[in-house]
Each structure stands twice: as structure tokens, then as C-alpha cells.
């Protein structure tokens, strides 16, 4: 913010404060509260899911076309590295879903107190990881 002409620089603490804004926080230096971590992961998982959409559509089409392509897409999904990729996507999907449900709850003023907001953030992290592990055990 520009100082108005005629105002003595640094004369008013509030004005000095305004003059030094905005602050750019270094995300790698501050200790982030859990809701912030969940929020960033919500965004990252959403973007990642968007980017893999064409791969998922191609795989889905392949799996439906014929018995041969079904077998091919099944063995593709059975490759260890692909399996790890699928599990990461499942985790991303589940995290995005749980964080989304948390968003809907906040919309109707559920869990907006600091304490409950922190608790529900931990819950989002825990539930999505536990469900991913369960699915991982099942497909491995």
C-alpha cells in the first residue's frame, strides 16, 4: 500500500503495519496447522485426479471392450508399480472425498470451532489412510 503524501513516514504504527503488507509466508518455514495440511492435500489430490482422467477413461474403455482387452487391463493393473500408482490414486480420491464431506459439514456450521476443526482434520487424514490400507490389503 502506498503512503499518502504528507504523512510522515513511520509516524503511525498502524500505517507502518499497512505499508509492510502484504506478507508472503514461506510455507516451508512456518509450522502448518492440521487443517491447512488437509486443505493443501485436498487441492493437490484434486489436481492429480484431474490429470489422470484420460488414463482412467482409457483403462475403463479397455476393460469393457472385449474379454481379451479386459484380461490385458487386469494384468496391467496387477503390475506392482501400477498397483502402487492405483493405491496412491485411491488415497487421493478418498482424501478428497473425506475432506469434501468435512467441507459440507462446515457449510452447515458443523465443526467450525477451532478444536473440532482440528479434530475433524485429523479424522479426514486417518479415515482416508485407513480405508486406503484396507483396499490395499484387499487388492494385494
Amino acid at each position: 500500500m502506498r503512503l499518502r503524501r504528507g504523512v510522515k513516514k513511520n509516524s503511525n504504527p498502524l500505517r507502518l503495519h499497512m505499508a509492510t503488507r502484504p506478507k508472503y509466508l514461506n510455507l516451508l518455514q512456518i509450522r502448518m496447522p492440521v487443517p491447512a495440511v488437509v486443505s493443501i492435500m485436498h487441492r493437490v489430490s484434486g489436481a492429480a485426479l484431474f490429470l489422470v482422467l484420460p488414463l482412467l477413461l482409457a483403462w475403463w474403455q479397455c476393460s469393457l471392450s472385449s474379454p481379451d482387452t479386459f484380461a490385458a487391463s487386469k494384468s496391467f493393473a496387477a503390475m506392482p508399480l501400477v498397483k502402487i500408482g492405483i493405491l496412491l490414486l485411491v488415497w487421493g480420491y478418498l482424501h478428497h472425498l473425506c475432506a469434501g464431506v468435512r467441507h459440507l459439514a462446515s457449510d452447515i456450521d458443523l465443526g467450525t470451532e477451532l478444536k473440532s476443526a482440528r479434530f475433524s482434520s485429523w479424522l479426514v487424514l486417518a479415515v482416508s489412510i485407513v480405508l486406503t490400507l484396507l483396499i490395499g490389503v484387499r487388492i494385494w
Binding site: 487441492r43 484434486g46 489436481a47 484431474f50
Partner: peptide, 9 residues
């Protein structure tokens, strides 16, 4: 949903 999300990003 993806459009709104990507646009916001």
C-alpha cells in the same frame, strides 16, 4: 466439478 476446481487453482 473438475472445471470449477481447476479454474480456482
Amino acid at each position: 466439478h473438475a472445471w470449477v476446481g481447476m479454474r480456482n487453482i
